[in-house]
Each structure stands twice: as C-alpha cells, then as structure tokens.
C-alpha cells in the first residue's frame, strides 16, 4: 500500500503544472503555431492558408530585422553589462565587514518593487532632453554643453533602455549571485588565502568556477528576459520604438502586428521566430557553461 502510494505520488505531485500548462499554454502555443501558417488581415476577415509565407516574409521585412537587432543589442547589454555589474555588486554585498550590509542588499533590490509602467514614466523624466535628471543633474554640473536627446536620437535610444535595465535589474541579479556565494563554504576561501593566492586569483580560480551554476541561471534568465522585454520600452519610447524604430523590441513588433495591424498570422510567426532565437541562444549557453546539474 505504502509502496504503491510512493510510486504514484510523484505523478500526482507534478501533474498540476502539466495539466494547467496543457490548458493555458499548450493550447495557445499550438493554436498560435497553427495560426502562423495563415494570413489574416483584420476584423471579420477569413484566414487564408499561406504555408511558410509568413516565415519567409520575416527575412525581407526590414522592420522585423531591425527589431531582432535591437533586441539582441539589449540582450548583449544585459549579459555583458548588467550581469557583470550584478556579479560585482553581489561580491561586494557578500563581504562580511561591509557596513550596513543588510540595508544595501535590500536597497539595491528595491527598483524591482515598482511597476514597469511607473519605471518607464519616471525614466521619461530621467532622460528628458530639457527637463531630465541626467542632463540637468549629471551632465550639466560636469560642464557638458548641448544636452543629448536621449529618447530621440536613434543612437542613444537603446543605451537609454539599457541604463533603465541596469537600474532595474542589477539588484535582483546581485541577489542571485549572493545566494550562490553563500552556498560556497568560507573555508575554501580561507584555505586559498593561506596559500597566498591574491584576490583576483581567488576570484578567477575558486569563486567563479563555484558560481558557474548561478552564472548559468542568471545569464539564461537575462537572455529570456531580454527577448521578452515589453512594458518598459513600450512606454518609454512608444509602441514603434521611437526614431528609426531604434527602440523597437521583437515583442513590440509582435504586438503591433497582432493587435494594431491585425495580422494575427504574421504576429504568430514573429512569436515563433522569437522562440527559436531564445531556444538557440539557451542551447549554446548550456553547451558553453555546462547543463543544469543536480549536485
């Protein structure tokens, strides 16, 4: 009886996710895939089968390709700027002798407690050309002449969004690193420093390898998050991504096609292109850093 219960229990335990997933995600995901082979152009129109037409069109759609570039630009910023800064912050917040350490930990996490809508609106005030915080309180005192139009110049739009991302997501990533660091036994470091290793050596040869699973986790979450980014850029630079679509993310282009131009099939195809990109990047990543493991 007990044995039987023990064999069945895991299936019962894991079933809620898969049942719920079947209803609320699998069906929409499959339905979306089906829709991606049809052309549908507006309210009341009949879907027309176009085969791979929507997918082929993606390759010649300049706006789509721009959105892929933009999104990848942000993802690169996320992986190569936000993640390293978060790692540094995590290391700093792990130092036992740091004064008011607990306060810092909480404080750097705080940008995440505000809604993306609010963040976008506040950052319009941060970046405003004439009345913005950056131009008035950082650049002006430093003696800059002629203020940059952060949210208007195409070259500055994506850096602005990355700055927003840095502000908002560094803290939570630092906390992930902190968690990873705390699972490393302090004796390992002590042993290393007795051996005369300097700080960089300790970091490079001991801390970083031990943090690998955390790093993997954080980078994957950063990539997925980047390719799913929507609310902040949508409200910061507008649905079209601002000048020359420089802030147009793939999700925004999907939304624009699906809910403004009413091209559901095309929007679904964009969704699947997005999925493939995330999938490929994640697999590359897993290969590079090693898969999730049970330790």
């Amino acid at each position: 009886m007990k044995q039987w219960q023990r064999r069945v229990a895991p299936y019962v335990f894991v079933s809620p996710f898969f049942i719920g997933y079947a209803v609320f995600f699998a069906y929409p995901v499959v339905h979306g895939f089906y829709m991606s082979f049809f052309k549908q152009t507006g309210i009341g129109s009949e879907p027309v089968f176009v085969g791979l037409g929507n997918y082929l069109k993606l390759f010649s759609d300049e706006t789509f390709l721009r959105s892929v570039f933009n999104t990848s630009y942000y993802a690169a910023g996320s992986v190569f700027l936000i993640v390293p800064v978060a790692l540094g912050l995590g290391l700093a917040l792990n130092i036992r002798r740091l004064p008011v350490r607990e306060f810092f930990r909480l404080f750097f996490f705080s940008p995440l407690i505000t809604s993306g809508v609010v963040v976008a609106i506040i950052f319009r005030l941060v970046f405003d050309e004439r009345y913005g915080l950056i131009n008035n309180f950082i650049l002006a005192p430093l003696g800059f002449d002629g203020y940059p139009a952060w949210l208007i110049q195409p070259a500055l739009i994506m850096p602005s969004i990355i700055i927003l991302g840095l502000w908002r997501y560094t803290g939570v990533n630092a906390i992930y690193f902190l968690a990873g660091l705390q699972s490393i036994s302090p004796e390992i470091w002590e042993a290393a420093s007795i051996d005369g290793a300097n700080r960089w050596q300790v970091f490079r040869h001991i801390t970083l390898p031990l943090l690998r699973p955390t790093l993997l986790f954080v980078i994957i979450i950063a990539i997925i998050g980047s390719y799913n980014f929507f609310g902040e850029p949508y409200l910061l630079v507008g649905p079209e991504g601002g000048t020359r679509n420089a802030g147009l993310f793939m999700t925004m282009y999907l939304y624009l096609n699906g809910f403004r131009f009413m091209k559901f099939g095309y929007a679904a195809a964009i969704g699947y292109a997005l999925t493939v990109i995330i999938l490929v990047l994640s697999v590359i990543q897993l290969r590079l850093l090693g898969a999730f493991r049970e330790d």
Binding site: T63, I152, P154, E240, T243, R244, L256, R260
Partner: peptide, 17 residues
C-alpha cells in the same frame, strides 16, 4: 483608408530623422 494606421506607424518614427 484601412491602411492609415499602418502608414502612420511606419512614418511617425521617421520624423525626427
């Protein structure tokens, strides 16, 4: 025109340029 919204969506991001 049924295509005005799409035209505006394409055009408006280009004015600054």
């Amino acid at each position: 025109s049924p295509y005005r919204a799409e035209l505006n969506s394409n055009l408006s991001p280009q004015f600054t340029d």
